[in-house]
Structures are given as structure tokens and as C-alpha cells.
Simulated assay, not measured.
Amino acid sequence: MWYYHITDDFMDNSNLQQLIDKYLQGTISVEEKERLLLWYRQQQEEENIWELAPGETEQQVGERMKANIWAQMDNIPVRKRVYWPYAAVAAALLLVSFSILMWNKSTSNEQQVAFSKSEGSANRFILLPDSSRVVLRAGSKLSYPNTFDDATREVSLEGEAYFDIKHRNNQPFIIHTGEIKTTVLGTAFTIKYPTDSKQIEVLVERGKVRVENEKQVFVELVADQKIDLKESQLKAKVEKINTALALSWKRQDMSFDALAFGDIAKNLEKRYGVKLHFINPALENCPVSGKFTGSETIEEVLLNICATRNAIYRKTADGEYEIQGEGCQ
């Protein structure tokens, strides 16, 4: 969540704030969008080309771009407060609408491995290189590449995870669990694969998935359906389930009832693998209440939590989050 401070005479006497408002509301004209993007390009001291450094993902280069945008915005004189009602919309403001030339100087696509085994009972949120979301249950392991450059997006899972997959028409998403693979035909689902039992459970919240091995397709599941399947099994029985109840684990530690902001921050640091810093230490003791599904990004969570305390947050150039606001009485 951000508050922007903007003057009317900025950007050739046009109101930059008004253009941003129109952009977020989807009412901006082609001409106005061109003017907005022209302003951004004019703020750059170098040619508008953003390179992918070795081992860097598109998401990371996006963060570098956002840091540049914040640096430009900080120099704008104060006039009024504007509250952005949607998580991460302002953060992504100019990243989704203009063409950027990027190339990777490294041809390697090194494997990334995300664990939640060392964090006790804490679940772990993962944002994949394609912006798909994963909630990895404690004791689980997810392996995935730096970037999804192949014809398919493939990951490997041990344990249990919730997936909310970003759709790509020509690049299917596949999860490998032992000899079984699950291909995403829809969006949100969970897979449970305890390596000691070789029993695979697939549960679909919405959309559709296909479960198969090298020899056969077992089933295509739709919303509120699940199967339990052994790797040696030839047939699988489809069950109707209560999805909300079955997925209650991903909401663990994401409901707060008058909990101190500082304690919430510690939980969020573990879940999202980030660092949170309070500019005003008095804010840490303020009680905060909130309820989340568990699949929100850290920006979406901070947006809502900060709103309850009339606070703001900002992601710094080194990837930490700074929270600013007054303390409570």
C-alpha cells in the first residue's frame, strides 16, 4: 500500500495522479497511456532496456524496475494523499503496459529448491517465476527452475502443497510426484505426496487437473473432487469433498485477532522468507486483526494490515519491507 503525493504542474502541466487513477480503473485512453509511459521513460538516465543478470528471474528484474519508479516518485512534491485499494496494483503500475527488452546473459536454468522443513510448523509461501502461487506445507519440499523457458513448466513436490497456477495457453504446468504427474488444466488445487507412503492425494479447489503416469491417464478432476492414488494402482476412485475444510491448513497462522503487529511481522517473515522493519518501533505493539485465505502475496497481506493501522509500507532496493506509521495508545 502506498500514498502518493503529486502536483498538478508535473509532467507538462498534466495531472500525473489523474492519469494513474485512470490507469488503475481501466479508463485511461491510448493517448493518455502513451503520455504516462513517456513520462516514465523520460525519467531514465539510460536506454530503456532492462537486462536479466545471471541467475535473475523476470520477477527480480521487475523489483529493480519498481525500485527505480519509487526513487522517481520520492522526488515529487507533496500535495495530497491517495489510497490504492488493491494489493500490489500500484507496485506493478508501469510494469505491465510497456514493452521491455530483456535477455539472459546466462544460459543456465539452475534448479531452485524451496523447503519448509526447517521452520517447524510454519507453512511457506512461494511465488514462482511465472507468478503462480504455492503454499508449501511444513515438512515439504518443492523443486523448480529459475525460469520456465521450456515448452512446459515443470516442478517436483515431496510433501503437500497448494497451487494457484497462472494460466498460459501454450505452456502447460506439470507437477511431478514420484511416478505420477499432474497436469494443470485449470487453476487452484492441492497435491499431497508423503514419500514414505507413496500415496498421492490430489484435490481440486477450482478449474481442472489431469492425473497420469507414463502408461495411462487416471482421471481428470474438477472443483470439489479428489483422488487418493498409490503409484502401483491402476484405477483411482474420485471422491466429492468439502474443499474449504480440506484446505484449512493453508490458512494456518493467517488469522489475527488483536495480535501485536510485531508478532504478526515475525510470522510473515517465516512464511514469505522476507525481512520486515518498523521505522517507528511503537507500531510493533499495536493490536491488529485480520483474516486471510493463505494464498495472498506478502504485498496483499501488508496492504490490508497496514490499512487497519493507518500505516504504509515500502519495499526497499535490497528486498526488505519498511513499515511506517504512528504508534497506538
Score class of each variant (00 low, 15 high):
2 W>D: 12
6 I>S: 04
27 T>L: 11
29 S>N: 07
31 E>W: 13
35 R>K: 08
40 Y>K: 08
40 Y>V: 08
50 W>G: 02
51 E>L: 13
54 P>M: 13
57 T>V: 03
58 E>G: 00
60 Q>I: 05
67 A>K: 00
70 W>L: 08
72 Q>M: 11
77 P>K: 04
84 W>Q: 03
85 P>E: 12
85 P>A: 14
88 A>S: 12
91 A>Y: 11
96 V>Y: 15
100 I>N: 14
103 W>F: 13
107 T>D: 14
110 E>S: 11
118 S>A: 15
118 S>P: 09
121 S>Y: 15
122 A>T: 08
128 L>Q: 10
129 P>Q: 12
139 G>H: 09
142 L>W: 02
147 T>G: 07
154 E>F: 12
154 E>D: 05
157 L>E: 01
159 G>F: 01
169 N>I: 14
174 I>L: 12
190 T>Q: 06
190 T>I: 03
202 V>L: 10
206 R>M: 14
207 G>Y: 03
213 N>E: 07
215 K>A: 10
219 V>H: 13
222 V>H: 15
222 V>R: 08
224 D>N: 09
225 Q>H: 08
227 I>R: 00
229 L>M: 02
230 K>Q: 07
235 K>F: 08
236 A>H: 06
242 N>P: 01
254 M>T: 01
254 M>W: 00
258 A>G: 05
261 F>L: 09
262 G>T: 05
265 A>H: 05
267 N>A: 11
272 Y>V: 00
273 G>P: 00
274 V>A: 03
275 K>P: 00
275 K>V: 11
277 H>V: 14
282 A>L: 08
289 S>G: 05
290 G>Q: 11
290 G>K: 02
296 E>M: 00
298 I>Q: 00
298 I>Y: 01
299 E>H: 12
306 C>N: 09
308 T>W: 05
312 I>D: 10
314 R>V: 14
322 E>A: 15
327 G>W: 05
329 Q>M: 13
